[in-house]
Simulated scan of single mutants.
Amino acid sequence: MMMNLFSTFDPTTNFNTSLNWSNMLLGILIIPPMFWIIPSRMSLIWINITFILHNEFKILLKTQKSKGSTLLLISLFSLILFNNFLGLFPYIFTSTSHLTLTLTLSLPLWLTFMIYGWIFNTIHMLAHLVPQGAPSILLPFLVIIETISNIIRPGTLAIRLTANMIAGHLLVTLLGNSGSLISLSLLNILIITQILLLSLETAVSIIQSYVFSILMTLYSSEI
């Protein structure tokens, strides 16, 4: 039972191939036509979302030197959101439930911020390791704690997104597998529960992509 349950997250489950990762490229086919046809409601909504995110990221970055940074963060949000939504459909591989993807997104960006910060803002990075007003006797321990908390940031980002995607999908799968074992009256309750869970998963997909991009913005603003 457990092997069958967790095999839904196996990239080689369907047809014994790893082509499930190719669904990440579907956005290339879906998104560009929005810019070549008469603006529809969907494209206008997406443009408004993009402008809202741009203004919010620009405020959090607190600098005018990094022009174009909001475009990178909006693209990151769009990629995660698209893959989260894609995983809500039946029989479609959820790529954001794997550390392979989430670490690929978080680790290079975090390394880029760290390398840039230590090369160009070394004094600021050293000062950031010591909280202001801390007692002198605690400074060595605080430096160690701040260093560890900084190092584990890409891991916490990746695990947060992966765990949220896996938890919701497992709950929906567990309830769905019990549908053939219960009575008709309980089946109606189960269907309503599944609809509510699907709505919750939709909200989680949006929130987690937003949280991922916002935390990455905050990490970059510290540099």
Rank of each mutant, 00 (worst) to 15 (best):
T8W: 11
S43K: 08
I37A: 14
M165F: 05
L200I: 15
P135Y: 02
L107D: 00
H124K: 14
S69T: 11
G168I: 07
L200E: 08
S136P: 02
L86D: 02
L175M: 12
E56D: 00
I74S: 04
W36T: 14
N14Y: 11
L138R: 03
S136C: 02
M216S: 12
L200F: 15
G27M: 07
F15T: 04
W118N: 04
Q194P: 02
P135E: 04
T100W: 09
Y210A: 15
T193M: 12
L29H: 09
L138A: 11
M114L: 12
F89I: 08
L101H: 04
G133F: 04
G155V: 06
A158N: 00
I191S: 02
V130P: 01
L53S: 03
F57S: 06
F51K: 09
I49R: 05
I214P: 00
T202S: 15
T63S: 15
N20Q: 14
L109K: 00
I80C: 02
L197A: 08
I52G: 03
A127Y: 10
L103F: 11
G117T: 09
T217Q: 03
I74D: 00
T94I: 02
P33S: 08
M125N: 07
R160N: 15
F93T: 00
T70E: 15
N48H: 09
S75M: 12
F85M: 12
R153E: 06
P135G: 08
I80T: 05
P90W: 06
L105S: 05
I148W: 03
N4S: 12
G117C: 10
S209F: 03
K65M: 00
L105W: 01
A163E: 15
L142E: 03
T63Q: 05
I123E: 01
I115W: 11
P32W: 10
L157K: 00
F51Y: 07
T156V: 13
L139D: 09
L184V: 10
F120K: 10
L26P: 01
T63Y: 04
L174W: 12
G179N: 07
T94K: 07
S95W: 10
R153W: 05
T202E: 14
L129V: 07
K58R: 14
A163V: 13
L215T: 12
A167Y: 12
P131H: 09
T156W: 12
S66L: 07
L138F: 06
T70P: 00
S40K: 05
L71S: 09
M24Y: 03
S136H: 06
I31G: 00
T162K: 06
N16P: 03
V211W: 06
Q64V: 09
D10E: 07
I52T: 11
L126G: 01
L181V: 10
T94C: 05
E56L: 04
T102H: 07
F77H: 13
N164A: 04
Y219N: 09
T156S: 13
I38F: 13
T94Y: 02
F35K: 07
E222R: 11
P135N: 08
M114C: 09
T50Q: 01
G168Y: 10
W21K: 03
R160C: 07
